[in-house]
């Protein structure tokens, strides 16, 4: 058993998952690969098992990204991994970046590292106008609530140290679209966050469940959640100080 694991949440990624596992397995000497199959209705689980390079956790009912990711973090906590890396199951996140994302963790500069598409100017990722506005909005809101600038608050490419794994196994935002909330939650609970520049690719094939619908629901839900996490946590902190 290795000291770290790569968590890959996926829903109906039958065509992509094997490739993602293959790519991630270049780190097989350091990281165990963990696939969280969020009750896919296709053969995702089988495709992942066939590679024989990953532990596959099949959720018996669909929980949404947040619940799936948390399952992986709970597993990481139980198995006493020191590091966990979260990678999307659609091939958007190039595993080569794992090395540079780990650095701030091993150097003890941060507890959670976020792979950002926008930190470097030329990162090769194109997205629609509306989506960029949405991302900018969360960047500003995040800055207001945490005092730290996150250029890519919706990025799901993240690395956690042991402290962050233990915290997030219990407190991870478990509904849909958890990423921007996670930043506020982590920051207000004293976890140190750092962004690292990565280049992302377009998903290999199929429909995205997470980010293609950059909808009104998404904006409202995430905004509400971020604001309430802020008030909830600052209230708890005040009570703790008394």
């Amino acid at each position: 058993m290795n000291t770290g694991c790569i968590i890959i949440p996926c829903y109906n990624e039958m065509t992509n998952i094997a490739g993602v596992i293959e790519e991630a397995s270049q780190f097989a000497d350091k990281f165990d690969i963990l696939v969280i199959n969020d009750a896919s209705t296709d053969q995702t689980s089988l495709a992942a098992r066939k590679t024989q390079k990953a532990t596959v956790i099949d959720l018996p009912a669909n929980l949404g990204v947040g619940g799936a990711v948390q399952t992986g973090l709970k597993y990481a906590k139980n198995q006493r991994y020191s590091w966990a890396i979260k990678l999307d199951g659609d091939g958007q996140h190039p595993p080569e970046a794992i090395q540079s994302m780990l650095e701030p963790l091993t150097e003890r500069e941060a507890d959670i590292v976020i792979g950002s598409r926008f930190l470097a100017i030329n990162s090769g990722f194109r997205s629609s106008f509306l989506r960029r506005i949405g991302i900018k909005f969360f960047e500003k809101l995040g800055m207001l609530l945490t005092g730290q600038r996150f250029t890519d608050p919706t990025s799901g490419f993240r690395a956690y140290n042991r402290k962050a794994i233990e915290f997030m196994a219990v407190h991870y935002p478990t509904f849909d679209y958890p990423e921007p909330e996670e930043l506020v939650l982590a920051s207000l609970n004293g976890l140190r966050l750092k962004e690292v520049s990565v280049s992302m690719r377009d998903r290999w094939s199929g429909e995205s469940t997470i980010s293609s619908s950059f909808s009104v629901y998404f904006m409202l839900k995430v905004t509400l959640a971020m604001i309430f996490i802020f008030f909830r946590t600052s209230k708890n902190n005040k009570e703790a100080k008394c």
Partner: peptide, 19 residues
Amino acid sequence: DKIRILTQEMALMRTELEK
């Protein structure tokens, strides 16, 4: 919340069993 926790615990136990 309760259903989520149950689902997660069940999946984790199943994985342990499988191993």
